[in-house]
Design a protein around this nucleic acid. Structure first.
Ligand SMILES: Nc1nc2c(ncn2[C@H]2C[C@H](O)[C@@H](COP(=O)(O)OP(=O)(O)OP(=O)(O)O)O2)c(=O)[nH]1
Ligand SMILES: [Mg+2]
Ligand SMILES: [Mg+2]
Ligand SMILES: [Zn+2]
Length: 583
DNA sequence: GCCGTTTTCGGCCCGACTGTTTTCAGTCG
């Protein structure tokens, strides 16, 4: 997407200006604009055509004209001018820990370093030690920073980070010096991917608590250890930051460490405008602390309601809070069922009976058992004979279940073929209780083709849900290119928020755009075993980050409402809730 | 470079840790 391309240019522009020692607020302006573009839901080409670039926060006259230039000409003269004579590798390098703009500039000016290889040679030959301000320890830290950066560039999935954080919290809570420990940072905000773990410790003896933290099992290296904060690198390369405060600063410290950075800066600016100062120690009027122990009070002292962590990205949540218009976010307990789960008929590991049993334990009113269609050969998609067998087994299982709960839905996750046709004929599709249509092939189609393909699928009245619409896989496959607005407008089918920890698809901002455009959503687990039904919670996290309310989520509806929605489309009746949503 | 309950200039969040510094710059959260 062009948004990402331009965001990357602005980010690099920011680094170039910093490298050259330009005014730091100019540097900041480019960085903020880059961040702002990444949060954008609309295609910049569309926004530009509509003349609405100046509505983007952080984009003024200059940056707007640069965006237009890139859209029209595919390049930006001022960017090209700035980067002339600066090795791109050095701008990349500025992402490595310890390699700030000043350091990298010195490497370039004094040692004419232009690549990582040259940098490595300079470190090993001792050439760096000759430089003013570069002692033994600094060079050693640079060596480590470079190694860490080269070995672990990827962010980790939330589904990996969250259990890791829980384990560390368990260990911390056993320490006598630790009164309380909580996870903060992007994990608490439930971002789909996590850079590092941020832990908050409450202690009457912070230095001691941090010393003990730095000796926890699994710690490979202590990168920093002070009186109030410490950073360690775990075996496996994950960075863990810990911040320790006294009880009376707990709320403010939790607010600070939860972030995001952009949310914090905005909040602190508001505090300042009100004659207050906000830091991780509290909210202060002069020397007087007016809040600090409790996070809700920290927000309250700024005349704001507590903002749910998932919203704290400075994507309009502070403005919404000021107007009392925060969304009533969907909660896990509001889900009454799961509409995407595989069985051992295709690539799942559990039987129909096992899936049903776990769904019953989760208190579900319904669960859809959706296996693959024949084109998904690796996933052992079902042919018609196998469908017949599966149908009969579901019928039998229905009779076995006390009170016939949960309702077992005979479902399919049918492939959307490259030409937009579905992988079962209509008469077969008509027999399912619920059909989710998903793309599992030909990911590289053009935006137009892909959009048409999805709309073709939606136009089949048997289809009620589009599964994992972007088909991205975190860490290995990017999203397919399609026009989200057009797909939303096509209506007819709900869009999935797939909770599989490597999918989380739709993304948060796309889900938000979908709800805003009046689309319905389905939050599903895409479980491939009974235990994986629980990963639906990650879908809920993602939905909350997308400002999603229960009214938009079809599987928060009671069975009678869901049931009539499932049938409405092919029976030609008005789909209940499709227009306005309902609980 | 952006932006406006301090409006079109003059600010732009606030604090901790490290190394090499003789008083603080650089980097990071
Ligand atoms: N006020 C303020 N807070 C910051 C700043 N940088 C970071 N923080 C706070 C908010 C962040 O969420 C928190 C943890 O910092 P991280 O760098 O770990 O970021 P975060 O966890 O949000 O994302 P990550 O997934 O780790 O990249 O510290 C800053 O420049 N100013
Ligand atoms: Mg973090
Ligand atoms: Mg951190
Ligand atoms: Zn799938």
């Amino acid at each position: 997407m062009i948004n990402e391309e331009i965001a990357n240019i602005f980010e690099r522009m920011s680094r170039l200006l910093a490298f050259k020692g330009e005014n730091r607020f100019r540097v900041l302006a480019y960085r903020r604009a880059a961040q702002s573009l990444r949060d954008l839901k609309d295609d910049l080409a569309t926004t530009a055509r509509e003349g609405r670039l100046d509505e983007i926060p952080g984009v003024g006259k200059d940056l707007a004209s640069m965006i237009r230039e890139y859209i029209e000409k595919g390049r930006i003269r001022r960017y090209d001018a700035e980067r002339r004579g600066v090795p791109g590798a050095l701008i990349d390098l500025m992402a490595a820990p310890g390699f700030g703009p000043k350091t990298v500039a010195v490497l370039h000016e004094k040692l004419s370093i232009t690549s990582v290889e040259e940098l490595n040679r300079a470190i090993n030959s001792g050439a760096l030690l000759e430089l003013r301000g570069f002692g033994e320890k600094k060079v050693e830290n640079l060596r480590r920073g470079l190694a860490l950066w080269l070995s672990s560039k990827q962010r980790m999935p939330l589904g990996v980070a969250l259990p890791m954080a829980e384990k560390l919290l368990d260990d911390l809570r056993k320490l006598a010096s630790v009164e309380r420990a909580d996870v903060a940072g992007s994990v608490r905000r439930r971002r789909d991917t996590i850079g590092d773990l941020d832990l908050l410790i409450v202690s009457a003896n912070s230095p001691r608590a941090l010393r003990e933290f730095s000796k926890l099992p699994g710690v490979k290296q202590v990168a920093a250890l002070g009186e109030t904060r410490a950073t360690v690198i775990m075996e496996g390369g994950v960075q863990v930051d810990a911040r320790a405060v006294e009880k009376n600063s707990y709320g403010a410290a939790l607010q600070y460490l939860t972030g995001s950075k952009e949310h914090n800066v905005h909040l602190r600016t508001i505090a300042r405008r009100r004659g207050l100062k906000l830091s991780e120690y509290g909210v202060f009027r002069g020397a007087k602390r007016v809040a600090g122990a409790d996070e809700r009070d920290v927000y309250g002292s700024l005349k704001l309601p507590l903002i749910p962590p998932e919203l704290r990205e400075d994507r309009g949540e502070i403005e919404a809070a000021l107007q009392g218009r925060l969304p009533d976010l969907i909660e896990l307990e509001e889900l009454r069922g799961d509409l995407h789960a595989h069985t051992n008929y295709s690539d799942g590991r559990s039987t129909i009976e096992e899936m049903a049993a776990r769904a019953a334990e989760l208190g579900y009113e319904y669960i859809a058992l959706t296996d693959h269609s024949p084109s998904s050969r690796i996933a052992r998609g079902l042919d018609c004979a196998q469908l017949e067998q599966k149908f009969e087994e579901i019928e039998a299982a229905r009779k076995n279940r006390p009170g016939r709960r949960p309702h077992l839905l005979f479902g399919a996750e049918v492939d959307i073929l490259p030409n937009g046709k579905l992988d079962y004929p209509d008469d077969v599709l008509a027999r399912f209780d619920v059909v989710t249509a998903s793309i599992h092939s030909a990911f590289k189609q053009s935006k137009d083709k892909m959009t048409g393909r999805l709309i073709d699928a939606i136009s089949n009245p048997n289809v009620r849900i589009i599964g994992h619409p972007t088909t991205r896989l975190l860490g290995s496959r990017g999203p397919v290119d399609f026009d989200l607005e057009a797909v939303i407008k096509a209506a007819g089918a709900a869009l999935e928020i797939n909770g599989a920890i490597l999918r989380l698809d739709l993304t948060d901002t796309m889900a938000r755009a979908a709800q805003q455009g009046g689309a319905l959503l389905a939050i599903n687990s895409d479980a491939h075993s009974a235990a994986q039904l629980d990963q639906i919670r990650y879908g809920v996290y993602q939905a909350r980050r997308g400002w999603i309310e229960a009214r938009s989520v079809v599987n928060s509806w009671r069975w009678p409402d869901l049931s009539s929605w499932l049938e409405a489309r092919r029976s030609g009746r008005q789909a209940r809730g499709a227009a306005t949503g309902r609980r």
